[in-house]
Design a protein around this nucleic acid. Structure first.
Lengths: 233, 233
DNA sequence: CAGTGGTCTAGACCACAGA
DNA sequence: CTGTGGTCTAGACCACTGG
């Protein structure tokens, strides 16, 4: 009952909610055209720019499709977008209320095997780092990371104290990347590090990060079965 | 050089890119304040609203933090947001180039067990549907779905031909939901349906969908190990 | 061609939080 | 209190694209 906010003032957000309700109530059913900005501006007694702001917001949410000359229509298949916030491992752990711990397992410059070379889109030498993240002293995730050895400043990185995960995000600019989830049986090594039984399921998160066209680093994170990545939609 | 050939076309997007570059080049390092809108508007020779549009866009991307009176600062930890597009299973399969198939395994109205009741935030009767999605005749995913039996129009749903996944999205309005990924060992039943060996890893996607405060449906999708959910960032 | 959304402007007022 | 972003306006021109 207690409405949190009631800014009688309102405008573009109010308009957005009103339109959202009309769509939701099937007053404007999927696929149906909705009045143009000018008309809506008159109805709501505001400037066209204000209506534009509201409809643009709905379009970003995938609730309507907008086209020049074609007008605005209610989306046929309201696309569900799940936004996952990828934090630094330290934050991820500390947000659960646990104490964060980190341990470097191994590190060295090597020529990557074919599969990794493919992910890096380069067969040049890489720094390979294997590390373990703890929560309250218990294994939380394994970080299996490959970093382009040509990266400047890399030799100054104190990976014995700070995880690549954290150091890279702080020191290396990037412009984009890709991400994938999958489930796999734990290899003997991963099982030992995560302290789970051999071949038990682990959740893998593959991530590659690029700066421009060049792939800087590729990482695979292994989480125990039972770990959950959540998101609202 | 030839600035004139470049029709100053997009002021807002141009400004955004310029600022992005200054951040990326550490010209404006993480945590540093950037000039206020008025100043930037003068620098770029445009209206303040245009600068606002550009900076707001960067803020939505998590690249800068904005505060009234506090001004705009380069984000300390550029938050990585991965946007997953959740499509209908049919689309998901057909986009891989495979032929989509569907088979209803079982369906019936039951009182949900405690764990499901918790997910539905209600212990009322639910329609429980177990179904299988195929790609080129091969098991692709198992859909284990619970639907609030009070949902109107539900009895008209032809779940023997159309998956709940598809029918619900087309016919039932919703306002939000939640999602979680995890890895689990396949139960005997799931293993049989997915045609994998017992206890082998499967990727689980739990999703609940609500309309207002009421949870309409909760679903758990099981994918074979090896299946990947991907996204760009 | 013409209608629609996309963008820009110059100015104004407001809400909020920092000093 | 004061500066900053947040929003709104009224009007204008432009770009795209459907008819």
């Amino acid at each position: 009952m207690t409405q949190t906010t009631k800014p009688a003032r309102a405008s573009w957000q109010q308009i957005r909610e009103t339109v959202r309700q009309r769509i939701h109530s099937r007053d404007w059913p999927p696929g149906a055209p909705i009045p143009n900005e000018e008309v809506l501006a008159q109805e709501f007694g505001c400037a066209r720019a204000t209506v534009n702001r509201a409809l643009r917001s709905l379009a970003e949410d995938g609730l309507v499709d907008r086209r020049r000359k074609g007008g605005t229509r209610v989306a046929l298949h309201p696309v569900r977008r799940a936004v996952l916030e990828i934090a630094i491992m330290r934050q991820e752990v500390e947000e659960t209320g646990a104490a964060y711990g980190y341990r470097l397992v191994q590190s060295g410059i090597v020529t990557p095997p074919d599969d990794v070379a493919a992910r890096m889109r380069s067969s040049g030498p890489c720094l390979h780092v294997l590390a373990l993240h703890h929560a309250d002293g218990v294994s939380y995730a394994v970080e299996d990371r490959w970093i382009d050895a040509c990266l400047t400043g890399l030799d100054a990185a104190p990976f014995d104290r700070v995880s690549p995960n954290e150091w890279l995000l702080e020191h290396i600019p990037y412009t984009g990347g890709a991400l994938a989830f999958s489930a796999e049986p734990a290899s003997a090594q991963i099982a030992r590090l995560l302290d789970v039984t051999d071949a038990s399921p682990v959740l893998c998160l593959d991530r590659s990060t690029q700066d421009g066209d060049r792939i800087i680093t590729a990482v695979r994170l292994y989480y125990r079965a039972g770990h959950r990545f959540t998101s609202s939609l």
